[in-house]
Design a protein around this nucleic acid. Structure first.
Lengths: 147, 147
DNA sequence: CATGCAAATGCAAACCGTTTGCATTCATAT
DNA sequence: ATATGAATGCAAACGGTTTGCATTTGCATG
């Protein structure tokens, strides 16, 4: 993503443009994996951007509040993870062996939610699914026959 | 559940029968809500069973490892919660207003999992769903029209 | 019933990801 | 150019959970 549109993301949210916000959005937008606050901190330091870990946390909070990024809490991960928000509903496939996290973009729950609402009276506004299992590579190395 | 069958649960798992294990299983089996380690500790103290919090944690770990209870991590809850394992596949409805957690017992994901496995090559062994929204009572108090 | 051994427990301290209070610096509206 | 509130750095606190170690307990065995 160009720097311009990163900056407009920030200002449109009513936030001040700071180098950390720009850098962190950029990092997340470019990353093809979920990143923890620590990961991001390490990356920034590596890129010669000295920054305090607590600033990273505060930045991530602000960006999450404003819908620019998503905070993702995965069951067995101790650290919260973050991703750039591309406004695409998705869920994660979590490998129990190598801990790799894959993303899937279709979701079958819409009809089912209607059904639950009718049956239970609970008004559903969102959901989260995590699938656990073994990725292609680990199936081979662990000798798991998938189908 | 009678005390006898609690004890056989413990011994069948190859664990020593201790008063804490018996009491904690009993508590969870009787509870109609999920309980945290703290909740359980408080309950035991209230029932005149002096016990250390770290023992509660160790007991819950052991019982979880042996499939007698389930550990449940809910997104915004800081503490892990525990429930007696009734071997019924289920998911939770989490009220964003009062934080009450309801349980639902049917699940539409089986067919969908087959599809994902075929499409992605990822071998799925389990999943977790959380639904967020508003329970019946909170819909009234917050004036949310559900349908 | 006595005994030995591994497992379970209590206690205090550590752990670790995250948050917070406060003084300083910075972004931006005027 | 400047004033003002927001953002940052730093160190310390927080809080749920884990751990090391000395002591106690459950239970298999004789």
């Amino acid at each position: 993503m160009e720097k311009k549109s990163i900056i407009s993301k920030i200002t449109e949210a009513g936030l001040k443009k700071t180098k950390y916000r720009v850098n962190i959005i950029d990092l997340l937008e470019k990353s093809n994996t979920l990143l923890s606050a620590q990961d991001i901190h390490t990356q920034l330091i590596k890129n010669k951007t000295k920054v305090n870990l607590s600033t990273v946390y505060r930045t991530l909070d602000k960006l999450t509040e404003n819908g620019i990024i998503n905070k993702v809490d995965i069951e067995q991960e101790k650290q919260s993870l973050y991703e750039y928000n591309r406004d695409e509903h998705h869920h994660f496939l979590i490998c129990k062996n190598c801990n790799k996290i894959e993303t899937i973009y279709n979701c079958p729950l819409h009809d089912y939610e209607q059904e639950i609402m009718k049956d239970s009276g609970f008004y559903i506004t969102g959901h989260k699914i995590e699938f656990y299992g073994y990725c292609k590579e680990c199936q081979k190395s662990l000798n798991i026959s998938s189908l």
